[in-house]
């Protein structure tokens, strides 16, 4: 069995969870096995995971699992993996997935890889996976034991696929100790899609001149249904919140579209964004290094270009 730990929030499955299911299904088809979805906590309509490739869904709820604790989450995932004799466990490359993957690999004594961008295939009992390395300056292929592996999948590595399937929902009783990592408060910006999951990201840098000018970036993001991001100096100067900082020392993202306005394209910035599928760069300096990494470039003053782009998108959507 191929197991997936399903990411969810506010009782809804996150896109990252569906992406992991999609890869699990591809793997299951190649190895003639089944897909098991693990849900810790609760989600609406768990049966519907069948439409994304799950054959079985294991629901685990316990007061001591209300808050995230790496030992407890590892324990319950490992328990199901052992009961089911699972070959592979897939996690999302999110804050939870990254916190769990190392622990789980030790607990299951399995091969392990994090931040997988591509599932290449299964051959003679080995699982072939690729991931970006050296801040996106290279891609490395890895061989893992296809009978014993744990990996995390990067956001947007695949588009979730739907299948004609149904899934059996099984509620599992577990005994869990009180968490040793006691979460006393959660502080999270609500409303926006978190950066690592966003399909479209609108980002801006020092070319904005000051935090008071961000309205045009927010308008563009709103029109596109995008999440906003920023370069590091902008976060360091507190023009924008730290969780928006992308790049080598910030968050690494791989959206389908990345729009950068007033960002020069320093190598450490590119490190976090160059896996984006399409990059649009708006900069008044035609020599800005970012243009070399871009698919589409606009040489111009962002204070004119950005509102014009927002308007063009609005017009386009009205004509659709």
């Amino acid at each position: 069995m191929i197991l997936v730990l399903i990411e969810h929030a506010d009782n809804k499955v996150k896109k990252a969870g569906l992406e992991a299911l999609t890869i699990a299904k591809q793997l299951a088809v190649k190895t003639s096995s089944e897909v098991g979805a693990i849900v810790i906590g609760s989600i609406e309509d768990p049966e519907s995971l069948g439409n994304y490739g799950a054959d079985q869904c294991f629901l685990i709820d316990h007061p001591n699992l209300q808050q995230f604790d790496t030992s407890n989450y590892t324990q319950v995932v490992a328990q199901i993996a052992k009961d089911k004799g699972a070959d592979i466990v897939i996690l999302s490359h999110t804050s939870k997935g990254k916190a769990l993957v190392g622990r789980l690999a030790i607990k299951l004594e399995s091969d392990v890889l994090s931040g997988v961008s591509q599932f290449v295939g299964v051959e003679d009992g080995t699982l072939l996976l690729k991931k970006p390395v050296f801040a996106g300056k290279g891609i490395a292929s890895f061989k893992l034991n296809a009978k014993k592996a744990v990996f995390t999948l990067l956001g947007n590595a695949v588009q979730p696929q739907t299948f004609d399937g149904s899934c059996t929902v099984i509620t599992r009783e577990v005994s869990v100790a009180p968490p040793r990592e006691k979460v006393v408060k959660v502080d999270r910006a609500t409303g926006e899609v978190p950066l690592p999951e966003a399909e479209i990201v609108v980002s801006a840098g020092r070319g904005m001149k000051g935090p008071e000018n961000w309205g045009i970036i927010e308008d563009l993001a709103k029109e596109l249904g995008a999440t906003t991001a920023c370069s590091r100096p902008v976060a360091d100067m507190d023009w924008r919140p730290h969780h928006e900082h992308v790049g080598q020392t910030g968050i690494a993202i791989s959206p389908n579209l990345y729009i950068a306005a007033g960002i020069s394209g320093a190598i450490q910035h590119l490190a976090g964004v160059n896996s984006s599928k399409n990059i649009v760069v708006i900069n008044k300096d035609p020599e800005a290094p970012f243009f070399k990494a871009a698919d589409y470039g606009v040489v111009g003053d962002l204070f004119e270009v950005v509102p014009r782009l927002t308007e063009a998108i609005r017009k386009f959507k009205n004509n659709q």
Binding site: G136, K292, D295, V299, L309
Partner: peptide
């Protein structure tokens, strides 16, 4: 427990397409 078998460079971008700043359509 991990076997790195191959490196490659990421696919190069085909080169930037410049768009007239007046023409966002």
């Amino acid at each position: 427990k991990q076997d790195l078998i191959h490196y490659e460079k990421p696919p190069a971008r085909t080169g930037v397409q410049l768009i007239d700043p007046e023409n966002m359509d």
